[in-house]
């Protein structure tokens, strides 16, 4: 049942991605991106990644749609219709895509418990994190403790991006706001 739902949702996502790519109304494309994110969040739930699904639903369908719409209101809503045919781009994409699909032939099958990705540190996290950290959510203990360095780096990236946006678009507070 999970597998059927997974495949149906993936097909829906591909159809939606093609539609977004061909659409000239950027306003509609931004709204469609929200639906696209929601579909991916459902797939994440089916694949047991509840924390990821949670984040994707809040970020993809909420904040990023608002930011895209904000940009469109400051620039333009309609994409200019490109007259030329992009045969070269299509060729590049087809070659890259077939190389990548050739590469996936060596990948382990879906859900295989003996796949290389499960042989490294994951077992240790699952067995030991309960007694070492005293909290049941393994994702949180890996995120904040075992891989605390990574997360510190990610938070710094978010901080830097925020500072960059403030510098690019001007200060977010002005004197008249304070009164």
């Amino acid at each position: 049942m999970t597998e059927i739902a997974d495949i149906v949702l993936l097909i829906l996502m591909i159809v939606l991605a093609v539609a977004i790519s061909r659409m000239h109304n950027l306003f509609m494309a931004a709204m469609m991106m929200g639906i696209f994110s929601f579909l991916s969040a459902i797939i994440f739930t089916l694949l047991d990644a509840v924390d990821v699904a949670f984040t994707e639903a809040a970020v993809g369908a909420g904040v990023s749609t608002v930011l895209l719409l904000g940009t469109l209101s400051l620039t333009t809503r309609e994409e200019k219709v490109a007259p030329k045919n992009n045969a070269l781009a299509l060729l590049v994409v087809l070659i890259t895509g077939s190389a990548l699909i050739y590469g996936t032939l060596d990948m382990p099958m879906f859900g295989d418990p003996n796949a290389p990705v499960h042989q490294h540190v994951a077992d240790r996290y699952i067995e030991k994190s309960g007694e070492e950290m005293g909290i049941p959510n393994i994702v949180t203990s890996v995120l904040a403790s075992y891989r605390g360095y990574d997360t510190l780096g990610e938070v710094t990236v978010i901080f830097t991006a925020g500072v960059g946006v403030i510098l690019l678009l001007g200060y977010i507070w002005r004197k008249e706001d304070e009164q």
Binding site: V52, T55, V59, A122, Y125, I126
Partner: peptide, 17 residues
Amino acid sequence: NPLPHVLILTAIVVGIA
């Protein structure tokens, strides 16, 4: 496997930033 979840969870928020 919780490890990919951790990597992608942070990647999503970095992605929006």
